[in-house]
């Protein structure tokens, strides 16, 4: 596949955090891509490195983060990891935009919605009235009634669902090529969640942007995404098209995620099931397969060395010796 068809190409990305206890190896050799006009979902338990991954893409990592040598994050042909500050400012909000998890804290409480929205357009040399009109149009588009009048309101005057709509509108202000959403509905109740997902589907048609969608919720991923990436403890363990992944899951971890209740795959609401055992310590990693301490199918090679990504089919691969050995 040529790089041209991918909006985003993450290659061999490793990120660690320096802590008092030692180096937390939050991401190790992650390879993912987002094809043009596709929605790619990322699932995985809490702490598996989903936020670290997307924060790396926008270079918004905590100051104690170290991006290891050899990592590449290619966005539309440019390596984000090599960008200068001014290039990053140019990238953020304009070419890649982001919607965060918690709409209650994502907006500045003392600045009006209109100002926060028009500020994003600071790069465009157009009159203020025109910027405000664009902001109001965007608000109307995400379903905020009476948008023109509400531009001068402040975040606390909106409900949680409304605020997430505003965040989405803000993210789309500059028509970005890639929209990253980090668990955009986790803080909302089921009805609001369904509304927001519906909205995102609509906007996807409208704005033709690619999307990287992070979620705990397998049902949402199944409903919204074209491709899925399953992460475990800082590694990609399985990736493929949504249908393949939900119907022909290979990695024991993915299967355990799904097996808890196969019927619920079709439902919109599904919490990530709890799996016995816990995520390994990211400072002191097991020698073999990262999942081996919790894996019911563990056999001899698993403790020796880490498995590679083995192709299941053209678009589908899993990081498990079972696939290599055809078991």
């Amino acid at each position: 596949m040529s790089g041209n068809e991918h909006v985003l190409d993450v290659r061999d990305l490793s990120v660690s955090f320096r802590t008092a206890r030692g180096k937390v190896r939050a991401l190790r050799h992650v390879d993912i891509n987002v094809p043009r006009n596709k929605i790619v979902g990322i699932v995985g338990e809490s702490g598996c490195g989903k936020s670290t991954l997307i924060n790396t893409v926008l270079r918004l990592l905590a100051p104690n983060a170290v991006i290891e040598d050899g990592s590449e994050v290619i966005f539309q042909g440019d390596d984000v990891l090599k960008m200068s500050n001014s290039q990053l400012t140019d990238l953020r909000g304009q070419r890649i935009s982001m919607v965060f998890q918690d709409p209650m804290t994502a907006l500045n409480p003392v600045i009006s919605i209109g100002t926060q929205m028009t500020d994003i357009l600071y790069r465009q040399k157009i009159p203020m009235a025109q910027k405000r009109k664009r902001a109001a149009d965007m608000l109307a588009q995400v379903g905020i009634p009476d948008a023109v009048r509400r531009l001068d309101d402040h975040p606390h005057q909106f409900s949680g669902g409304m605020r997430q709509r505003i965040c989405i509108a803000m993210a789309l202000m500059m028509n970005p090529s890639l929209l990253i959403a980090d668990e955009p509905t986790t803080a909302l109740d089921v009805t609001l969640e369904a509304q927001i997902i519906h909205l995102m589907k609509e906007l996807r048609e409208e704005f033709e942007c690619s999307m990287l969608f992070v979620s705990h919720n397998l049902g949402l991923i199944a409903e919204l995404c074209d491709e899925v990436i399953v992460m475990y403890a800082g590694e990609v363990v399985e990736q493929g098209e949504v249908h393949d992944l939900f119907h022909r899951a290979q990695h024991p971890y993915t299967r355990m995620l799904l097996e808890c209740d196969p019927a619920r795959i079709e439902e919109t609401r599904q919490e990530l099931p709890t799996i016995s055992g816990s995520v390994p310590d990211l400072i002191d990693l097991p020698k073999g397969c990262i999942f081996s301490p919790r894996c019911p199918h563990r056999y001899e090679p698993c403790n020796e060395s880490p498995p590679d990504h083995y192709a299941v089919s053209d678009q589908h691969s899993a990081r498990c010796f079972l696939v290599r050995d055809g078991r």
Binding site: G93, F100, T105, A106, N108, R123, M170
Partner: peptide, 14 residues
Amino acid sequence: ENHIRMARAYGLPR
């Protein structure tokens, strides 16, 4: 706070 990270994600000048 979160909204500062958000403002940075939108590329607002430092």
